[in-house]
Design a protein around this nucleic acid. Structure first.
Lengths: 91, 91
DNA sequence: TTTAAATATTCAAATGTTTCGATATATAAG
DNA sequence: CTTATATATCGAAACATTTGAATATTTAAA
């Protein structure tokens, strides 16, 4: 993972709403629907859409279309890669 | 570690110059001097000072005064705590 | 005690991010 | 085919971050 990617993932994680979205996976387990995120956050739909886009662009979330709904799964692999980079910082 | 702290650390990590500073510890090992960071980055002294402040405010770096020089050590504990929070996201 | 060196602070300009209203697009339901 | 629902995009306002010039502060050296 190059530095540009580390920067992008870090930026995706540097917002309270986006951290809350990721943590919601601990409850909902396997997947989370776009509509659920809309209900969960105290933001308008375009704002939620913006935050989800940041997470998808950073590849922390993988989107899957289901008819007119949108389902997200957590990308555990990229989280592992990011954690590995941080671990390397510690000499 | 609460979400405000995760947010702050993530933001500190979301900049190419600051990532480069942290990675420099892998070379210089134990500690890094402020002056070394000034030499290393293609930025003016006030800008470097700003970036170092972000890292210190996030507690990723611990500053130690040595006369008129300033020495930084990496705060491995907070990195570990941050990594632990990210690991928890993975169910 | 004057001077020089290292670092921090202030201020303003430039740039980037977040938010929302309005609107567009896509797809399902009637 | 028309309507309703889910999500995305656009545009602008508000806010935050990054940068550097100028200047202040701190401490060492002369």
């Amino acid at each position: 993972m190059d530095n540009k990617k580390i920067e992008k993932i870090s930026r995706a994680l540097s917002d309270a709403n986006r951290i809350a979205i990721l943590q919601e996976f601990k409850k909902k387990k396997d997947c989370l629907y776009c509509a659920e995120v809309n209900d969960m956050l105290d933001l308008t739909q375009p704002s939620v859409s913006h935050h989800l886009k940041q997470l998808v662009d950073a590849e922390l979330l993988l989107p899957q279309k289901e008819g007119r709904n949108l389902k997200y799964v957590l990308n555990q692999q990229i989280l592992d890669d990011y954690i590995a980079c941080l671990t390397e910082l510690k000499d």
